[in-house]
């Protein structure tokens, strides 16, 4: 049994201006101890999926239309608020994109870490403080800095503190939402390295949300490519990297400058992501797809296993045409 199994999750934002179809029937699973990279452009529905797992979709306007999120076999969508609170921060914790705003500016960093420990372990304040200082040491921040306020930390330190907070209760699943996007490139590598080590140490699974295929290559065991709220390709890292099949995935790889070749211009995917409030019929990517045929614009496209454990949502690939 997978640690986390998402089946047919559909999340919409219903506003007066129209329905934003952020997530449209995704299926995912994360095995214990493994790292899944969720890759996609901005607006593909990655963060919404992650928030959906934690039950933190703002309602209204968010609305979970259908699906199941099975965590250790139990459906989180049916869990009570109290049960969800026990899971959040304890079994599943999350690292957000922007460490600058993720910490409360008026509370001491140490207290913010202790808080989650007290909440879930029920230990005393002193114990929690000790433990949170330990966590800070673990992420490479001197224990006495626990008494500092977030504004006294640099961006990298803040993210370390956020990571310390997220790992404080030994979560089974760590969701990292673009954890390094806001950081300097030099610090990015350090932070990623540290995350990976800690995760291995604790034996946690990780859902790493990113748009950076480089990070995925370094960190992940499995990869899911998301486009317009759908998973378009999913599989083990090597398979996706060595044998990308979906035209969108191909496009993503194509847009990365190669060190081997001397190219003057990047090779981006033509066109723009469709407006999630007004998604095209048929394959969501067909308007930008070089391989699209007339049929692609209608009907629904299912995931299809092209090789063992490698699924692609493209009827032309499924049909063996490309």
């Amino acid at each position: 049994m997978s640690l986390l199994q998402i089946n047919d999750l559909t999340i919409h934002y219903v506003t007066r201006g129209g329905t934003v179809k952020a997530v449209n029937g995704i299926d995912l699973s994360i095995e214990a101890g493994r790292t899944l990279g969720l890759v996609g452009e901005t607006g593909a529905g990655k963060t919404t999926s992650a928030l959906g797992i934690l039950g933190l979709i703002p309602k209204p306007p968010g609305k979970i239309i259908s699906g199941q999120i099975l965590f250790e076999g139990a459906d989180l969508l049916k869990a009570s608020q109290g049960k969800m609170r026990m899971i959040r921060g304890n079994d599943i914790s999350m690292i957000y994109q922007d460490p600058m705003t993720a910490l409360n500016p008026i509370l001491r960093v140490g207290d913010q870490i202790s808080e989650v420990i007290i909440q879930h372990s029920g230990c005393s304040k002193a114990e929690a403080r000790e433990k949170s200082e330990g966590m800070l040491e673990t992420v490479g921040i001197r224990a006495e800095r626990a008494a500092d306020y977030p504004h006294q930390f640099s961006g990298g330190m803040k993210q370390r503190a956020v990571i310390a907070m997220a790992l404080a209760c030994n979560p089974k699943l760590l969701i990292a939402d673009e954890p390094t996007t806001a950081l300097d490139v030099t610090i990015q590598a350090q932070v990623l390295e540290m995350m990976r080590e800690l995760k291995d140490e604790l034996g946690s699974s990780m859902l790493l949300i990113t748009h950076d295929l480089g990070i995925v290559a370094e960190t992940c065991d499995d990869v899911a490519i998301m486009y317009a709220g759908e998973i378009v390709e999913i599989g083990a890292l090597e398979r996706i990297f060595h044998n990308p099949r979906h035209p969108y995935t191909l496009g993503l790889f194509g847009s990365i400058p190669s060190l081997d070749k001397d190219v003057r211009r990047l090779n981006p995917i033509p066109g723009l992501m469709p407006d999630p409030a007004d998604l095209p019929s048929g394959c969501k990517f067909h308007a930008r797809c070089a391989h699209a045929c007339d049929d692609c614009g209608s009907g629904s496209t299912e995931l299809c296993e092209t090789e063992r454990g490698h699924f692609v949502r493209c009827r032309r690939v499924a049909g063996g045409e490309i």
Binding site: I87, R88, P105, L107, V116, Q119
Partner: peptide, 26 residues
Amino acid sequence: RQDYIRTARSKGLKEGVIIRKHALKN
């Protein structure tokens, strides 16, 4: 709507605690 409130939520804190401790002071 601030990120740190979302952080607090994802820590599994109770809504009341979030409002009192994290939101109110801000």
